[in-house]
């Protein structure tokens, strides 16, 4: 399978063979880490950039009362902030939601790559801007959408993002996230997540099995969510061999 970072960046720009090779070179030494571990914690000094090759992570923050807010999901191909080493300390933690294959990229490698390869520098900027777009959309989701639309929106987003890195199987994707973690991501109680998941199943929008979601009615899910993928800024179709990632065709 193609390196998910390359698949992801190809949604922005048609990288040349030498740029692709340079990105592959970054990923030669990966390591496996366990679900529940932090890649980096709040207060740590960031020196390297983490790249997920497989598995999921999330950005999160604990509150004084023990409550937790998840602010983003990081999927295969996602870099945990391309220039995070500019900052002195982390203002949040990045933890693994599943077992994951991770690459630790030293800051020097990132700096050399962006200095010498303008297309990669542009693609990294694009990726940072997309992260901001996703964060804005999550803010809208939590602030203004009701629970049903919130969960529908999250499912639409995950399907499109995973499709672009080749990780959907037709209408199905893996969701290594508990109901409680979904609640912490959507600003909902677990009971409310359970309620809207049940409603979604009863209305035939999705089927869920342990750790996977099947989209049964993409059109309707799209409509419930009011989903517009413009904030993902997918400028090109996914890498060759895959069909366009359009949810309403499911």
């Amino acid at each position: 399978m193609q390196n998910p970072l390359i698949s992801k960046l190809l949604s922005c720009i048609d990288l040349g063979a030498d740029d692709r090779a340079a990105l592959e070179e970054l990923c030669t030494s990966s390591m496996w880490r366990d679900a529940g571990e932090d890649l980096i914690s709040e207060g740590d000094q960031p020196s390297d950039v983490f790249l997920l090759l497989s598995g999921w992570a999330c950005r999160y923050k604990y509150l004084r009362d023990g409550g937790r807010q998840i602010m983003a999901y990081l999927l295969p191909g996602d870099l945990c902030d391309t220039h995070v080493f500019i900052l002195k300390t982390m203002d949040h933690s990045i933890g693994l939601l599943s077992n994951a294959e991770v690459v630790r990229i030293p800051k020097e490698a990132i700096l050399t790559l962006t200095d010498e390869r303008p297309d990669i520098a542009k693609a990294f900027w694009w990726s940072t801007l997309v992260d901001e777009g996703v964060l804005r959309e999550w803010l809208v989701n939590i602030g203004k959408r009701d629970a049903y639309a919130r969960l529908a929106h999250l499912f639409c987003e995950l399907w499109v993002r995973l499709c672009h890195v080749g990780l959907t199987r037709d209408d199905q994707f893996t969701l290594p996230v508990t109901q409680e973690q979904l609640g912490d991501s959507l600003g909902l109680t677990s009971v409310h997540v359970n309620r809207v998941l049940g409603r979604m199943r009863n209305e035939g929008l999705v089927a869920t099995r342990a750790r996977s979601v099947t989209i049964l009615n993409g059109d309707r899910l799209h409509e419930v969510a009011g989903f517009n993928p413009n904030y993902l800024h997918l400028l090109r179709n996914p890498a060759s061999g895959q069909r366009a990632c359009e949810l309403d065709n499911l």
Binding site: A147, L188, V191, H192, N194, R195, G198
Partner: peptide
């Protein structure tokens, strides 16, 4: 509610119920 949710005890379930009702 067809599936239910786990809680440590009835007090935890009550707190969740109040928050859940607030969300609705």
């Amino acid at each position: 509610d067809e599936t239910g949710t786990d809680f440590a005890d009835v007090h935890a379930a009550q707190l969740e119920a109040i928050r859940f009702a607030g969300e609705v």
